[in-house]
Amino acid sequence: MQALVIVAHGSHLNPESSTPTYGHADTIRETAAFDEVREAFWKEEPHFREVLRTLESEEVYVVPLFISEGYFTEDVIPRELRLDDWDPDAWESDGTSATHVTLDAADVDKTVHYCGPVGTHDAMSDVIVRRAESVTGDPDVGDGFGLAVVGHGTKRNENSAKAVEYHADRIREMGRFEEVQALFMDEDPEVDDVTDFFESEDVVVVPLFVADGYHTQEDIPEDMGLTDDYRDGWETPAKVDGHYLWYAGAVGTEPLMADVVLERALDAGADVADAVEYVKEHTRDAAVTEA
């Protein structure tokens, strides 16, 4: 038997923080690719600490629903899962290239395939593009449009900015959008000045965040000038400094994220190739229906 565990931050305060995690897990459940699919959280239950024991499968694929490599993926999750032989060097990553490592957990008799975070997988670039399609309602969006990928960009963890730049570079190389720019909340280039960085009249803004919350629903909309007060909401698109800003909200809420989770498990050896194809198609339908 093989199991998938999606590990995410969760929240003591925000009831919707875990909603995307459950949504992606449900999408993957529908494929029946895994005998068991479980969600686990740092701030909700089941906690990272107790999730492995709830599984009957011997092979477990653990995929962090986090944007970048750093404190959570390198310290907290391995420690709480009791992956005793874990060492950050095991991933042999340059900051965005972690794939997976196979380890034992101290409290269960299982093989744990600990995967890199979803945020740095190549397939994430496709999710950002899909997010742009969703928010504009145009499956061919690109011509005449700029795209801003927005990250937290904390100085404490350089990998956070690396992930944002990595996807911005990849999408720029696709040649689909007129311009692609990586922007950050607390370092240059700042999201506050978003319109300074684009010549295109229309700009899609996709925050590289796992869930909607304070940053994506309060901070960024106000910083960009979409609204003076987030509680009043904003238009999509909103006219700011002569540009139309299509603000997408957290990329992690896009149904195609389930594909990235699956791809992580696939790369780590899970037998889920058919499910990957199914999810790519199915989530496109879901996105169209929602839009």
């Binding site: 239950e45 089941p46 906690h47 107790e50 999730v51």
Partner: peptide
């Protein structure tokens, strides 16, 4: 297990 996670295992 949804309402009381991990309680059966423990």
């Amino acid at each position: 297990e949804t309402i009381y996670p991990a309680t059966i295992a423990n």
